[in-house]
Design a protein around this nucleic acid. Structure first.
Lengths: 264, 264
DNA sequence: AAGTGGTCTAGACCACCCT
DNA sequence: GGGTGGTCTAGACCACTTT
């Protein structure tokens, strides 16, 4: 098993370099976090290269005068970052820098806009109880003709339309629809009032698509202009589908940014 | 502090329901994972509703006859799922079901295609050392006219073009370019050979855009058809930009799927 | 002051991998 | 068989929040 190597003229001196580091017991930063930072620095600087094995947990505990459980907490952070991979019975190994990997997040609209420094607002275009279209009934596993709650909203950023949101939700209880609850659209609360099943999880598919005339008119963009088309599937705890929707995000204003890989 | 409540006619009886559960010490599933599953079930079923406090860690340890460290490991998993949030000094609280939240991942192309059941392949269109265009030189913080490595590739899925990849990379060493290394395009290895700085991280921005004529011709789609345009920024450990690229993903074939929120 | 989560310890045994 | 990571224990002290 290769433990240390050399590439491209760069020397790797992981153990020696690590051995010179110390945990500052007087710091407010807890030891597990200090150790994670120390190892991260030595990995990113190349003292440990891709494929190299880190010193065993017991050895790190000895080197830094901390317990093994504390060492494990450090390494777990680094593993979450994708920097190293622990392998039972073998050791903990440095990964290739994940240059072709990244994660993105889709966030609740208002929160998302606030994070981007824009002021979110919302206009309820329509909310009605209707007989489920055949396509929707089959998706939601309802008898054809069963009633569903249909909601259309336009979501604004700094008073400009950004997202066109259409959703079909299970409607089992005959409760009257309150405009107020749909403006803010706390989806779990809405479904708790109108549906017999508790929503538990959403899955999404993001595609690109050309705006229809309707979508373009509402969003204030040219017909056929490209946009993010986000399909939403709301599931209950037992896995059945209890809501389905399409969100169209303006392609000329909206974008996704990969999440920073930080030590948390 | 509200600890238990009632909503929409559903009763919440978290503590009593939890108290009836047991850890199976003969199971191969470790206790921390069993407890995480137990709590997840009672949260998703509504025994604990949004805002409710879970029993304190010490109480859970007592209830299930396990140590507090083990309880903490269970709760940490649930916190990673976004199901609960622990708050020092206050307690651990159930979140709203994250119906409007999701995460996506951008993966290395071959890995991505394999996961989708497609056979990845690659064609190197061009690889050359060139004077950095002004725009690129300023991005990579190079003197104007410095040489950079420019690579154009077409990435195929089941022998159909899927992604058009163009990248500019730092080129400091004058090493000859080997076609083979660019076919597989292990980016860290390529940069280790040709650059003096170690790449450490990538950041991405995903936009929608219409294909240019060049892009459309290479991808085999109509000009102006919508596509995912992924901008890549490759950083070194010290934060400086050492690579920049644009990847165009076919809009008619490619899509992103949100990651399942699973207990790992 | 009491209750909560956050961190740490110094052990222990186990499952797994390699030789 | 020896070395590795995975899990667990039974405590301890601390930081923070609420009463």
């Amino acid at each position: 098993m290769k433990q240390q190597g050399e590439t491209g003229g760069r020397t790797r001196n992981g153990w020696e370099a690590l051995a010179r580091e110390r945990i500052d017991r007087s710091s407010f930063v807890p030891p597990y976090y200090q150790l994670a930072q120390i190892i991260e620095r030595h990995v990113r600087s190349g003292d440990f290269g891709p494929g190299d094995m880190l010193p065993p947990e017991a050895e790190l505990a000895r080197m830094f005068g901390i317990s093994r459980m504390t060492v494990r907490k450090s390494i777990e952070k680094l593993a979450q970052l994708g920097l190293v991979t622990a392998s039972q019975g073998r050791g903990t190994f440095v990964n290739q820098p994940p240059l072709e990997h990244a994660t993105f997040s889709l966030r609740e609209f208002a929160e998302d806009m606030q994070a981007r420094g824009l002021r979110p607002s919302c206009r309820l275009l329509e909310a009605k109880v209707m007989r489920a279209p055949a396509e929707v009934a089959s998706k939601l596993n309802l008898d054809p003709g069963r009633r569903v709650l249909f909601v259309r909203r336009l979501l604004y950023a700094d008073d400009e339309p950004m997202v066109y949101d259409r959703k079909y939700l299970r409607y089992d209880r005959g409760q009257p629809i309150l405009e107020a609850e749909l403006e803010y659209m706390n989806l779990p609360a809405v479904m708790a009032r109108h549906s017999d099943v508790l929503p538990s999880d959403s899955r999404f598919v993001v595609r690109v698509a050309r705006c229809s005339h309707e979508e373009a008119a509402l969003l204030g963009v040219e017909p056929d202009s490209p946009a993010f088309q986000v399909e939403q599937f709301v599931h209950s705890a037992d896995g059945s589908l209890v809501g389905w929707g399409i969100l169209v995000y303006r392609g000329d204003r909206y974008y996704f940014t990969s999440l920073p890989r930080l030590l948390r």
